[in-house]
Design a protein around this nucleic acid. Structure first.
Lengths: 137, 137
DNA sequence: CAGTATCCAACGCGATACTG
DNA sequence: CAGTATCGCGTTGGATACTG
């Protein structure tokens, strides 16, 4: 429980400057955790470029995500100011999600990383196969 | 267990093109998992720009990582072809880690994301505080 | 020094059922 | 439709002890 430091988050943020992610108490690690979590990045990618989606649409687009995890992920991203939740008071409920300016910036980085991985996927997977074969010999 | 598809990894990679991370069986998700795992990204950041470090150095630099997780993370990144492990046959053992060309490219993206987060950390954390206050009211 | 092995606690996450 | 609540399993991951 070394994380239990008796400081508010804002005072913490002031004690850290760039390049400090490697430091164990840097609050940027928490933010990165949201962005790079199993579903966080995919939500950003799905909503990037000004897209707006409803909850059920996101669930369909982001294949494999459960209701629980999608709700949880969206709330975390909303808290950080990456996602805007717009609720229309109608029956049945209608809720839309989109990115804030901050979220769009984050999404650019995440999408860039994902694109790079997809572009180099063949090479990476062939590396992995080689590694497995070497081990077996 | 929907992940248990009866296809080799290479054939899988050929069935997917760019933009398919949102598809549930896209193998890029596995790779992203390694890169964006709790310690994977930090390893890439620590080694980026041609840095070379020994195991114990990495442990010191990446604060909070345990021996087990560092070893595990390094092995995963080595398998994907991101990290090179160089072992000198001396006593006591001397092992060095550095990035491959592929790893350097990945590290650029990860470091870019981390830098962006650190640069916007104050704003993000203030968003979070607002969210908490709104909830309390 | 650079790991591996084992054990166990904590958490992530999905399945299911329920609500406004 | 858009969630929340609860349960429970599987994985993650840290602590500790041991090895070449």
């Amino acid at each position: 429980m070394q994380e239990k430091v008796n400081l508010t988050k804002t005072s913490l943020s002031e004690r850290f400057t760039r390049g400090d992610v490697l430091s164990s108490e840097c609050p940027a690690r928490d933010v990165l955790k949201h962005i790079t979590s199993r579903w966080g990045g995919l939500v950003l990618i799905a909503l990037h470029e000004g897209e707006t989606f409803r909850f059920s649409e996101l669930r369909r687009i982001i294949q494999g995500v459960s209701e629980k995890m999608l709700a949880q992920t969206l709330q975390a991203l909303e808290q950080d100011g990456f996602v805007i939740r717009t609720s229309y008071p109608v029956v049945p409920p209608h809720v839309e999600y989109s990115l804030t300016k901050l979220g769009s910036e984050a999404a650019v980085h995440v999408a860039g990383l994902a694109d790079w991985v997809e572009g180099n996927l063949t090479e990476i997977l062939s590396n992995r196969n080689k590694a497995v074969l070497t081990k077996a010999s």
